[in-house]
Design a protein around this nucleic acid. Structure first.
Lengths: 391, 391
DNA sequence: TTGTATGCGTTATCAC
DNA sequence: GTGATAACGCATACAA
């Protein structure tokens, strides 16, 4: 590209550029930050001097005075799960994080700010907090997947601009972007019901985070309160399966009250039953949950899984058990990640516009950085149902 | 933790700490960088003042004078592949990168240097180069997966300390860490041969990178030059399959000459045949390659796949085609990533100690940073065969 | 052992 | 429109 002179490693200073262009340091600074009032001729001369010398601004010196680093962190905070050898394994195995990175990067580029990916688990929270306090970044996009994760609160109390990737578990006056979790679950319930499924089940995410609890809660609500749909094709009345560990008492879970019995089953209007198992948003977790579900409810005919990755695992379990999808059991995932397309059959799923959401997060963060006092706000995206072959 | 006073956002300066402790700025600086010769009493007083004020060093100011940022970049450079919606999807879908991150992070922690993950494709090389030139980091760990990736050379010419994650495609005087690719492939070949497989095949990685070409080359060499092993159980002589597109001329590929016919088949000593297909290190790529292989060679009985992820795809293809593993065809992967354990059956694979390798990369990088003139060196790890159920 | 003084490379506030 | 000049917050050589 540009003419490069001198061996690598010798960074010229602004003064040298100024000297080469026959102007003052201040002028060089002006053309670099293209401030107004720069004589066209001078500007060119400086530009020339810049590329001749291979000058690059020293970020340290610059941010010392501007108090800006022009980069933001994407902090991915994962709790160490027992059977996970490393939290990094989950992060680099779930397409979700790549989508967030892509969306954020794209939105940040026009603003000339860099995205720094910082994965962390509870073990090195301290490291991360230090990193943030040291002023390496101007703000942080935070993905936290556990209710008892202290990081969101810590970041907030640090006073550093931040935007969360989902509704905070506790009350925290901070901006966040989320998808309408409950609406997504309702989409899935309606589709399964309309299909004629009557023995429903769901594999939820961890119940200590909104994405886990809300999807479960709303799915249960939607199913149990639904008016009787089209008659089941094979007319036998659904009966509670033998091995069920939970009572079959009909009750509609009160909205907004997660923490209700994680595993169990309810029966609602039209004799529709619904069984619940909890997963951890991993493929193997989904597979295991599906097996438990099939043990308890062999007559399962409709399954809503709270993430595509878990759905992929569930599909494998179903196949192992000799169930055909969607004929024997219809399956709906959540996310519409690349995993959905790799499923066999391709997964019908609730689409979350993750890239757009991440881009919005970035915009919000930029706004917070530029306007320190700005009051927090939340942006909620509506999910859509993407119908493929699994349901 | 520490007593926090004042609202977040107001960072105290070193002078304020000095004042609070009744000492000079220099002394505060000394205890922070725990330089020698600090009176125990004074030291305590300063420590107290530090935590009372909630002081945190300003990295910009610090690195302006030390010319060190205390952080290094892990640059993951992926070419945009045609059918890949985003290169980030591959990065956040392949366990390999998580392992590298884990290994590097662990080795860097004792040195108090942060790891900044910077994914990039050819589209924003310029961004990354700018980031590096600006001095955001003291050095870079570089994972580059394409021969025509200009990044390694660029980084080198920038004069910034760097360590590559594999042997550079071209001649480049730079340090790198790698696994003995050829030895790994030989391990796989020996195991397959010893098992009695005679109609071999391999799914290689992209041939324009060492990890792709070397594994293929060495596997082919090992197979074709092997002495006749134990007699095949079912005694019919192996014959070139009907649909084969390539001539069956027996030839042994000269070592070190990649770029030889990517797809085709050879027959070596003992009538052993070997077919080749090329994948792209993704699961779907492996699946497609396996299907092509099965189309051409229905009598396949031994398969070496150059990555666990591709092997996972291959297993799916085999299952779809009604082949039992390992009874009908034995499969060996490469990496021993988490994917190997998620395979059905669990994958026999060539283990690459990625975490250790990444840690070594970090050590080398630190050394290069601390000793500017240090001559480049390479560290090669020996892979091992992990025998599970697929072969 | 501790304090003083200088410089790191920019940006920004002034005069000109 | 352009050029001096003063911070920015810290580390360090040197003096005490």
């Amino acid at each position: 590209m540009s003419t490069k002179s001198g061996r690598g490693g010798h960074h010229p200073t602004m003064d040298q550029v100024a000297a080469a262009a026959g102007v003052s340091r201040a002028t060089v600074s002006r053309v670099i930050n293209n401030a107004a009032s720069v004589a066209p001729g001078i500007r060119d001369a400086v530009q020339r001097a810049i590329s001749q010398t291979g000058y690059v601004p020293n970020v340290a010196a610059r941010s010392l005075v501007t108090r800006r680093s022009n980069s933001v962190a994407l902090v991915i905070s994962e709790p160490d799960r027992p059977d996970d050898h490393s939290f990094l394994n989950r992060i680099f195995t779930d397409p979700y994080f790549g989508r967030v990175t892509a969306g954020a990067t794209g939105a940040l580029r026009p603003h000339d700010v860099h995205l720094v990916v910082v994965p962390t688990d509870s073990a090195d929270h301290h490291q991360v907090v230090r990193y943030l306090r040291q002023g390496h970044v101007d703000g942080v996009l935070l993905i936290s997947s556990s209710e008892d994760d202290p990081l969101p609160a810590q970041v907030h109390s640090l006073g550093i601009p931040a935007v969360l990737a989902s509704r905070p578990a506790g009350p925290l006056p901070v901006s966040y972007v989320d998808v309408d979790q409950r609406f997504g679950a309702r989409l899935a319930a309606a589709h399964l019901l309309a299909r004629g499924c009557r023995n429903l089940a769901t594999i939820s995410g961890p119940l200590d985070i909104p994405a886990g609890a809300d999807r479960l809660d709303a799915f249960r609500d939607a199913v149990l309160s639904a008016p009787p749909g089209p008659a089941p094709s094979a007319g036998s009345a659904p009966a509670e399966s033998p091995g069920s560990a939970s009572g079959g008492s009909a009750r509609s879970a009160p909205a907004g009250s997660p923490g209700s019995a994680p595993a169990g089953s309810d029966v609602g209007a039209g004799g529709v039953t619904i069984a619940v198992e909890t997963g951890d948003f991993t493929r193997v977790g989904g597979e295991a949950a599906a097996h438990r579900l099939l043990d308890r409810h062999p007559d399962l005919d409709g399954l809503f899984v709270a993430s595509d990755l878990m759905a992929e695992g569930a599909l494998r379990a179903l196949q192992d058990r000799g169930r055909r999808v969607p004929d024997d059991v219809a399956v709906i995932g959540f996310d519409d990640s690349s995993a959905a397309l790799e499923c066999r059959p391709p997964l019908t799923t609730v689409r979350q516009p993750v890239e757009e959401m991440a881009a919005e997060m970035a915009q919000l963060l930029i706004a917070h950085i530029d306007t320190p006092g700005r009051s927090p706000r939340s942006v909620i995206f509506q999910p859509t149902l993407v119908i493929r072959d699994s349901a």
